[in-house]
Amino acid sequence: MTALTVTDLCKHYGALKVTDHVSLDIAPGEIHAIIGPNGAGKTTLIAQLSGQLGSDSGRVALDGKDITHLSMPERVRLGLARSFQITSVLPGFTALENVALAVQARQGSSFRFFGTVAAERALNAAAMEALHEAGLDHRAQIPARSLSHGEHRRLELAIALATKPRVLLLDEPLAGVGGEDAETFVENLRRLKGRLTMVLIEHDMDAVFALADRVSVLVYGRIIATGAPDAIRSDPEVRAAYLGEEEQEIA
């Protein structure tokens, strides 16, 4: 059985096809990277998979269960979480509170009006664990608005992890993260490998080829190739559409 099945998914704005009959089969435990030039529709695809954006046609299934018409909160509760390309956290909350809220979403009712939530040990402990996995536990008490860009990216990951997803959609987790920081971040992600299924959108090709089991190439809303990283790297069509372009830029 596949962890996430996408069948003939479409989305268009007027005549512009942003997602054009996308089909993907993602195996449990796999890290599946989706690469493509800017404007290929990667973020739109993530938005459709996460339920933030409706689809015009096609089907999305999580562990065989059809989730095409479920809302984002409903999908999260079934185990499909996402991180955002542009950091989207609760700025006035501390890092710990940001993550604890994600734990709270899956643990017990939130229609409790009396007990002090900040004193709930179970929430804080689970949140600290997620922060630890993302490499941010030492900054737990810092308000999110005071964190650096790299720390925001880690907080994004920690929040997504705290929802205990089976499938995690990562929208450019490394956006704007460079150098050594990027390396440790990739290491954090590698440690999660096998424990959960990940769909990874990333521009950092080093990260993609270091992490991904398989790579799909999205161009103008269509998947033009799917395969092992090495096969993708040497695929002439992919090189023409995407990788070549980048190499030319570098040259």
Partner: peptide, 8 residues
Amino acid sequence: RMEAIGFA
């Protein structure tokens, strides 16, 4: 963000 962690 709240929707993305499961709150409607």
